[in-house]
Design a protein around this nucleic acid. Structure first.
Length: 479
RNA sequence: GGCGGCAUAGCCAAGCGGUAAGGCAGAGCUCUGCAAAAGCUCCAUCCCCAGUUCAAAUCUGGGUGCCGCCUCCA
């Protein structure tokens, strides 16, 4: 079964074929000028899952994600606060990485920064000038869009149609209003570097072209980012890279949909964004991932304050099931068994679910469908657990269920709490003792005392469930 | 004005020509001293109109309504 992805460049799903021994991925990272918000989390979580899935399928990945640490907004903020732009950028870059760590997002292999690649940028601009795709005017260097016949191929725009409707001030030095800056002449109170065209700084788009070429070469596999970047950012990247090298930039362009904040219940005072830090104060990171992955990566999603609370119950059922499975197979020697009857049926369901999960992910990384598959398996497993079997066959098939859940929902999607049952030495034996005593009380029909114990434990955050096959306990689903 | 996307049950959300996945909420039942958990069952013909087809939520045309991009944004 092959992997198919929707390629923005061709506007259709294509079979993914990787050349070379690893999959090269470039995802447009953030411009670190403010705190990391939920919108940033979407592509990060999506690519985290894509990478983990690809590796589960046996591929090797190499992921590069930039920090655009030289930019108008950073400079504006730095000047307003009387600080150094690079220091501001460094601070919010750290905020970004810390937020992503907290969301369980695996780090990229490289996080190149613009400020550390001025030389690479200058040489790319030089080759663009040499190939007559760029021109110098008064210390500025502009890309000449008319010189690149494919301009507009990603965003499906035509040059002459793009010219209408421009509302911004056009630099009179440009040959064409759509020409964009590769190098900006130095201005007062802005950082600047030496270049063949005088002091200045790079334009917005060139860094991605220069850094992706340096670390991934031509025609790497995946280029990702938010769909708001299609034009002009990615369109310009294509023009620069392909103009400079004469070779395709990337083979598959994947763009995620936007996450918008519903205005109804505005959070905090400023702006309509929710920071990761604030969200994680109230909700576990795995629930945030569950939310993001519950819809397809290309669709738009709307967030509001109650969203995660609404999704919490369904999500919690996975964790409960994992805890129960772990409890059932804990301290048991698991030996592979020849399965018959109900165990064979369940084992078959588990195997099929894993295949369906793969099919879903192979189809343009359909995590929403993949999660539905896991819910179906959840029913099967819970139904079997309720039977209360404790044979070697049961142990084996439950261990299989545990393995598949923790691999698919845990390792790949990252939607399961890993610290489900953080036990300190005495907790387990004490709980055993309490449950035994309480069972004895119930046998003597002393329900008042038994209920008192249950209520008291509940107030301590421990839930007791009396199943048909004896009591079990778990920590309350607070965090 | 140009480009792109979306409209599926109370809410969220898959589906991409073969007769509507999944989750939340809701109803009923089973288990149970009670509670919780779990299981089972029930709950939509897919914005409107007109076409194509043996067959359309899925394709085509026309509406209507949202959203994104065209200026910084993941």
């Amino acid at each position: 079964m092959t992997i198919r992805v929707y390629n923005s460049l061709t506007r259709q799903k294509e079979v993914f074929e990787n050349k070379g021994n690893r999959i090269g991925i470039y995802v447009c990272g953030v411009t670190p000028y403010s705190e990391t918000h939920l919108g940033h989390a979407r592509p990060s979580i999506i690519w985290d899952v894509i990478k983990k899935y690809l590796r589960y399928r046996g591929y090797k990945t190499f992921h590069v994600q930039n920090f655009t640490d030289i930019d108008d907004k950073i400079i504006a903020r730095a000047n307003a606060e009387g600080r150094d732009p690079l220091e501001v950028a460094a601070m919010f870059s750290h905020d970004y990485l810390a937020s992503m760590d907290a969301l369980g997002v695996e780090r990229a292999d490289l996080y190149p920064k613009v400020s550390e690649h001025i030389g690479d940028i200058i040489s790319m601009i030089e080759s663009l000038i040499a190939r007559e795709h760029a021109y110098v005017v008064n210390g500025n260097v502009f890309f000449d869009v008319a010189s690149f016949s494919d301009y507009g191929k990603l965003s499906n725009q035509k040059l002459d149609e793009l010219q209408a409707g421009t509302r911004f001030e056009v630099d009179p030095d440009k040959k064409n209003p759509l020409d964009f800056a590769l190098w900006k002449r130095v201005k007062p109170s802005e950082p600047a570097w030496e270049s063949p065209w005088g002091k200045g700084r790079p334009g917005w788009h060139i860094e991605c072209s220069a850094m992706s070429l340096k670390y991934l070469g031509n025609e790497f596999d995946f280029h990702g980012g938010g769909c708001d970047l299609i034009f002009p950012h990615h369109e310009n990247e294509i023009a620069q890279s392909e103009g400079a090298t004469g070779k395709p930039l990337a083979r598959y362009w994947l763009h995620n949909g936007m996450l918008s904040i519903k205005q109804a219940k505005m959070s905090k005072s400023l702006g309509n964004f929710v920071t990761i830090k604030d969200i994680l104060k109230e909700y576990p990171s795995q629930l945030v991932r569950f939310y993001i992955l519950s819809s397809h990566y290309r669709s738009e999603i709307e967030y509001h304050d109650e969203k995660l609370a609404e999704m919490r119950r369904g999500w919690q059922r996975f964790n409960d099931c994992i805890v129960n499975l772990a409890g059932l197979i804990d301290n048991k020697e698991i030996v592979e068994q020849e399965l018959h009857g109900e165990e064979a049926v369940l084992a078959d369901k588990i195997q099929k679910a894993e295949q369906e999960f793969i099919d879903a992910m192979n189809d343009d990384f359909n995590t929403a469908l993949a999660i539905a598959v896991l819910f179906n398996l959840l029913h099967q497993v819970n139904g079997y657990i309720a039977l209360g079997y404790h044979t070697k066959q049961a142990d084996y098939v439950l261990a299989e269920a545990y393995r598949v859940f923790t691999t698919l929902a845990g390792d790949i999607l990252g939607i399961i709490k890993s610290e489900t049952r953080q036990l300190t030495g005495l907790t387990e034996p004490l709980m055993e003792l309490i449950l035994t005593l309480r069972t004895e009380l119930r046998n003597q029909k002393d329900y008042q005392l038994a209920d008192l114990i249950r209520d008291q434990l509940a107030s301590l955050g421990i839930m007791i469930e009396d199943t048909a096959h004896g009591p079990r306990w778990k920590f309350k689903n607070d965090r």
